[in-house]
Design a protein around this nucleic acid. Structure first.
Length: 206
DNA sequence: CCCTGATTCGC
DNA sequence: GCGAATCAGG
């Protein structure tokens, strides 16, 4: 495939939106992330670090490509290869999406500021407000937590289970880290308790 | 190991 | 101009 106008535009758009090179490549198809990065550089729109939030979608800045200074390359911007501004860190576990099922989990109540933080040492009950979660699912979770990868916040990726385990106020806190279920933020076991098939409350008027 | 972007350099 | 290979980093 070649860099047609359309493809280049999509590239610009997505890059502007902060999409990663690999994502863009995936979207475009027929190219690798390397190709995308290469193109990005050739287009001269590498630094996405403009201090300003890069969420301006649809608003193409239309950067006028400076009239090439005939007088040699005087203002050659030296770019220290350090400015790197990593993308937002993996978002903390936030069960929130899907359609009907409502996220019931609050594995460890993350108490914000000072306010009676649970004294470390007392293993928190798996579920604050036990309810109609399939006992099976619960059992499964407890099992999984034994074999969890126990990864840190920094190690979370799109394909690692983000289910928090333990007390955030303690060293004994980590994330499940097992392979997530396609699309979901959690592994199979945790998806099971995170997203209820909506059982109670079905007297919906429509 | 997964991923990210940056650079190089033969084509 | 292109992009695989490689590098540097999280």
């Amino acid at each position: 495939m070649s860099w047609t106008d359309e493809r280049v535009e999509l590239l610009k758009k997505m890059w502007g939106e902060g999409q990663s090179a690999s994502q863009i490549a995936k979207e475009l198809g027929g190219v690798t992330r390397n190709a995308v990065i290469g193109k990005v550089h050739r287009l001269g729109l590498s630094n996405r670090t403009t201090g300003a939030p890069v969420a301006a979608a649809g608003t193409a800045p239309k950067p006028s490509p400076e009239a090439t200074p005939e007088t040699e390359e005087a203002a050659q911007p030296l770019r220290p290869r350090k400015p790197e501004t990593r993308q937002a860190p993996a978002e903390p576990a936030t069960p929130e999406d899907m359609t009907e099922p409502e996220p019931t989990p609050r594995p460890s109540n993350v108490t914000p500021l000072r306010k009676a933080i649970v004294p470390a040492g007392q293993p928190l009950p798996p579920q604050p407000s036990a309810n109609e979660i399939s006992p099976e699912a619960l059992a499964k979770v407890q099992e999984v937590e034994k074999t969890a990868k126990r990864i840190s916040l920094m190690e979370l990726t799109e394909r690692t289970c983000k289910w928090p385990i333990g007390d955030p106020a303690t060293e004994d806190f980590y994330f499940c880290g097992l392979p997530v279920q396609q699309g979901k933020p959690y592994c199979e076991a945790h998806v099971g308790v995170a997203f209820q098939p909506m059982s109670s409350r079905r007297d919906r008027r429509r």
